[in-house]
Computed example of a mutant assay.
Amino acid sequence: MDNGRQGRNLRIGDPEREQAMRLLGEHFSAGRLEIHEYDERCRQIAQARFGSELDVLFNDLPSPRPNDRAASSTPAPQNPGIPSRAGKIVLAVGAVVLLLFLVVVARQFGLVLLLPLVAIFFFTRRRG
């Protein structure tokens, strides 16, 4: 029972705090907050007990806010198993570095050690 209190005055839990920190991180990455402001607000979010305490921390920021319906229903990534373009580039650079290592250092064992690399490359190219 909420004893007649309205929604933002009710106690919050870890999921609400985590959502508020995620949204605050979006504002930080957009350049709306300096590092010391972000740090201080994260500390206040971690100590918040009521929804109204979170609202105060977002008063000077545009949407998304913790009480926005759109913010609470953010969609999950559709294909988390498929690497992004940046992930594919990192994988390719790593493969080239490993190939150079195998050719220069491992010489005789290079072909044996190269087979797993080729298999990894083949299967990742096939998925993405």
Rank of each mutant, 00 (worst) to 15 (best):
D14I: 12
E16C: 01
R17Y: 12
E18A: 04
Q19Y: 07
Q19A: 09
M21F: 05
M21N: 14
R22H: 06
L23Y: 00
L23E: 00
L23S: 00
L24A: 03
G25T: 01
E26T: 00
E26I: 06
H27G: 01
H27Q: 02
F28E: 15
S29P: 00
S29L: 12
R32N: 07
R32Y: 11
E34K: 15
I35G: 11
D39H: 13
C42F: 02
R43F: 01
R43N: 12
A46V: 02
A48K: 09
A48R: 11
A48T: 04
R49Q: 13
E53H: 05
D55C: 06
F58H: 05
L61D: 06
P62L: 12
P62H: 12
P62Q: 10
R65V: 02
R65W: 00
P66G: 00
P66E: 00
N67S: 12
D68Y: 02
D68T: 09
R69W: 05
A70N: 03
A70V: 09
A70C: 06
A71K: 02
S72M: 14
S72E: 15
S73E: 15
S73D: 12
A76G: 09
P80H: 07
G81Y: 10
I82A: 11
P83I: 07
P83V: 06
R85W: 13
R85G: 15
A86K: 14
A86V: 14
G87V: 08
G87E: 10
G87Y: 05
I89N: 01
I89M: 06
V90L: 11
V90G: 07
V93T: 11
A95L: 10
A95W: 05
V96N: 04
V97W: 09
F101D: 11
F101V: 07
